Computed example of a mutant assay.
Amino acid sequence: MTTPTNSQPNTPQANLCPLCGEENRCAITAGDDPASCWCQAPEIEFTEAMKAAVPSHLRLSACLCPACISALASRTE
């Protein structure tokens, strides 16, 4: 599992996680129905702490990947 690191992509890309730089598996950037995205699963909850973990200059540039969401969720429990 990839965990968030302090290294960030130099140029935000919509298909890459802004924390780890790995593919974020976003349905929207893949051209699929947004409702089919992994992040729409009922067990996924985006907290303010998770949002704050993303450097301000990368916020809203791309979705986090499942591994980073999982790692952040385990830190805030």
Rank of each mutant, 00 (worst) to 15 (best):
N10P: 01
N6H: 13
S61K: 15
K51A: 02
S7V: 12
T5C: 11
R59Y: 05
A30K: 11
A14K: 11
N6F: 10
S70E: 15
V54A: 04
L16M: 11
P34A: 06
P66A: 14
I28L: 14
V54F: 00
K51P: 00
D33P: 06
S7E: 07
A71C: 09
A62V: 05
N6S: 09
A49F: 07
C20N: 03
E45Y: 03
T47H: 06
A27F: 08
Q13H: 07
S61H: 05
H57D: 14
P42K: 04
C65A: 12
K51L: 14
L64N: 07
C63K: 12
C37R: 04
G31M: 12
Q40N: 14
A49N: 13
Q8R: 15
S70A: 15
L19H: 00
L19N: 00
A62P: 09
E48V: 08
P42C: 02
C68I: 08
M50H: 09
A49M: 03
I69C: 10
I44E: 07
I69R: 04
A67D: 15
L58E: 11
C26H: 01
G31W: 15
F46H: 05
G31Q: 14
P34Y: 08
L60G: 10
S56I: 13
A14G: 09
W38H: 13
Q13T: 14
E43S: 13
A35R: 10
A71T: 10
S7H: 11
E43W: 06
A67H: 14
P18E: 07
A53I: 08
C63A: 12
S61R: 15
E23I: 05
C39A: 10
S61G: 02
C68T: 07
Q8Y: 12
T29H: 11
I44G: 05
E22V: 09
R25N: 11
L64Q: 04
I44C: 09
C39H: 09
N6I: 02
A14P: 13
D32V: 02
N15H: 15
A53L: 08
N24G: 09
N24V: 05
G31C: 08
N15P: 00
I44H: 11
P34L: 02
C20H: 01
W38S: 14
A53P: 09
N6G: 05
S56G: 00
T29R: 01
E23T: 02
K51W: 14
C39Y: 13
L60A: 12
C37I: 05
P55I: 01
A49E: 14
C26A: 13
T5P: 02
A52Q: 11
D32F: 10
S70D: 15
R59P: 03
S56Y: 01
P18S: 09
I69G: 00
L64V: 15
I69S: 00
L58Y: 11
E45V: 12
G21W: 01
R59L: 03
E48M: 04
W38F: 06
K51Q: 13
